[in-house]
């Protein structure tokens, strides 16, 4: 079982302890939801898991293998959509996704299908600067789907999605579970959490 395991993860900013020895495990086919108030360190936890931030202590493992962001294998199995995503100003929506799919050996869902699924087919040739915040969010989520993945990390994926988008998200997360993906996400949406969560990870008190 290649479960995503976090052991004793601690992150401090100066003498402020944001994450204090956080530990949990999310098995393949499960959704783990990080719960906590604003400022409790949910995003910091997700950033540490994907290696966008360095924890002061603790380890992240897939199965028995410790994850290092510098390891190409780790990057090949871990898809993430956090709020810090940025775009090449001169590449279209389609080109962003095609580039990512190509970089991963085309092992994810076909780009055209993902564009349709996310409702981005009409924005296919648009440059990122012309996208609305909701469309940017959809593009970020699409970036996780056009590539192969065993672990999916999402930071409040429901943000900026309309009602139909939220319904799609719930359905998509169920399909990810069925496909055996371990999903770790932060969310404030009680309905979404109730619909998909298998593991609840409370942080920040």
């Amino acid at each position: 079982m290649d479960a995503l395991t976090v052991e004793g993860l601690t992150r401090r900013f100066g003498n402020l302890v944001v994450l204090d020895a956080v530990s949990f495990a999310v098995a393949p086919g499960q959704v783990g939801v990080v719960l906590g108030a604003n400022g409790s360190g949910k995003t910091t936890l997700l950033r540490c898991v994907i290696g966008a931030d360095r924890p002061d202590e603790g380890v992240v493992r897939i199965g028995a293998k410790r994850i290092y962001e510098t390891d190409a294998w780790a990057r090949s199995i871990m898809a993430a959509a956090l709020d810090d995503i940025d775009f090449f100003p001169d590449l279209s929506v389609y080109e962003h996704l095609a580039l990512l799919a190509y970089a991963h050996g085309d092992g994810g869902d076909p780009v055209d299908e993902v564009l349709v699924e996310l409702g981005l087919e009409r924005a296919r040739d648009q440059l990122p600067i012309t996208l609305s915040s909701g469309q940017r969010r959809r593009l970020a989520l699409a970036s996780c789907l056009v590539r192969p993945r065993k672990v999916l990390i999402l930071d409040e994926p429901e943000q900026r999605l309309d009602v139909a988008g939220r319904a799609w998200l719930t359905d998509r997360l169920r399909r990810e579970k069925a496909a055996g993906t371990a999903v770790l996400m932060a969310s404030h949406d009680a309905e979404l959490i109730d619909a998909v969560a298998d593991v609840r990870i409370g942080i920040g008190g």
């Binding site: 079982m1 290649d2 897939i62 199965g63 028995a64 293998k65 190409a72 294998w73 090949s76 199995i77 190509y102 970089a103 991963h104 050996g105 085309d106 092992g107 994810g108 192969p148 993945r149 065993k150």
Partner: peptide
């Protein structure tokens, strides 16, 4: 210690 078979996801052969 448990040994884990780490199989790359299908199709994940990154290009040069």
């Amino acid at each position: 210690m448990t040994t884990t078979a780490l199989v790359p996801p299908p199709g994940a052969a990154p290009p040069p």
